[in-house]
């Protein structure tokens, strides 16, 4: 198991390198560095300003290799061959040096650290509340399967699924903040327990947005288990309907649930674009959207780097949880 984990961690290196390579190529295919500078400085920026902007951010170096044959326009004779944009970036990522924002040269690491906290404060509770609700509702449906309650809940899920997320956001803000004035509609402030007031609305909206589809998915997972032979064996032993469901079916179904849920856990750090935008939460989701809008490629790059690491970590975590939950699986 340890050997397996180490091997999987080694696979991370080439995969992340590949992701960063593709991201790098895309940036330079899409634009020249001059257009990048002008996007920040404005179209009327003087050549000297552009040059200075590029120099401050290290973009005045050759793209791949510092050599006359590779990139004569940007060749720096006084620097070694490895002093190129690509190699510098990779070196920085390898040491988790995320660099500075292209826009205002603020350290990206700091920005991410401070954005992570509000993001996690929304996504983690939302994910657990949502998971708990969806599993509980799905189990109720399976327990009363093929009854009017089951049908009614299926219809309710379809309704929940067909409402656009924006409608949840606006109606929640309207009801709880504007009409009842119980909770703030917008904004975020870290103030100990008082923070909860800012979290209630975004967390509940986020939990509800995916509820319909999750309940349906979990219901079908549990129904599939209910049809298995071991369920009949348990019934033949005299185990009650609830006992069969909560012991036998839940444990087997949980193994399928793990793949769906655990892979997403690390990505919770990245926050939710939609929720953070509409509830004014200064989290990572908002940070990335802003960076894209401002063409702040340094931040986008860092986000891609962290995102791919987290994603791979989620996959590894899934496999480990699988092996822990399912006695049939041995990692090797």
């Amino acid at each position: 198991m340890i050997a397996y984990i180490i091997r999987r961690l080694l696979y991370v290196l080439p995969i992340v390198f590949g992701v960063m390579l593709i991201t790098f190529i895309l940036f330079f295919v899409m634009q020249t560095r001059e257009t990048m500078a002008k996007a920040q400085l404005g179209p009327r920026a003087k050549p000297a300003e552009v040059k200075n902007w590029l120099h401050e951010r290290g973009y005045d170096k050759p793209v791949v290799i510092n050599a006359a044959w590779a990139d004569p326009a940007y060749h720096h004779t006084d620097q070694p061959w490895w002093d190129s944009i690509f190699i510098n970036q990779m070196k920085n990522f390898a040491t988790f040096e995320l660099g500075e924002s292209d826009f205002n040269r603020e350290p990206i690491g700091e920005k991410i650290k401070s954005g992570m906290v509000p993001s996690l404060m929304i996504t983690v509770p939302a994910m657990f509340v949502g998971l708990f609700l969806a599993v509980a509702l799905a189990l109720v449906q399976v327990l009363y399967r093929a009854s009017a309650l089951d049908t009614g809940m299926t219809v309710a899920c379809a309704v929940l699924m067909s409402i656009v997320p924006m409608a949840y956001i606006i109606s929640a803000q309207n009801l709880m903040a504007i009409t009842l004035k119980w909770l703030p509609a917008f904004g975020f402030d870290l103030q100990g327990w008082g923070t909860i007031r800012f979290l209630m609305l975004p967390v509940s909206v986020m939990a509800v947005i995916y509820l319909g589809s999750d309940v349906r998915l979990y219901r079908s997972i549990f129904l599939e288990e209910i049809a298995q032979d071991y369920v009949r064996t348990a019934q033949a032993k005299g185990v009650s309907g609830r006992g069969v469901l909560f012991k036998h079916v839940l444990k087997n179904g949980a193994i399928s649930l793990i793949t769906l849920v655990v892979a997403h856990l690390p990505l919770l750090i990245m926050g939710s674009l939609l929720i953070e935008n509409f509830f004014g939460i200064p989290g990572l989701g908002g940070l990335v959207v802003n960076a894209i809008q401002k063409q702040d490629f340094a931040i986008v790059r860092a986000a891609v780097f962290i995102g791919s690491l987290l994603y791979l970590f989620g996959l590894l975590l899934t496999d480990i949880c699988y092996a822990v939950a399912d006695p049939r699986i041995r990692l090797s």
Binding site: Q228, D229, Y230, R232, T233, A234, Q235, A236, K237, G238, V239, S240, G241, H248, K251, N252, I255, A325, D326, P327, R328
Partner: peptide
């Protein structure tokens, strides 16, 4: 009723099924 039936199953009438590999619960 359900309760009486459950006291019957396994206690008075027990079953052995065809496919042992799927009839046992894999995770217990």
């Amino acid at each position: 009723k359900g309760d009486e039936l459950r006291k019957l199953r396994g206690k008075r009438i027990a079953y052995v099924f065809q496919e042992p590999s799927t009839s046992l619960n894999p995770v217990f």
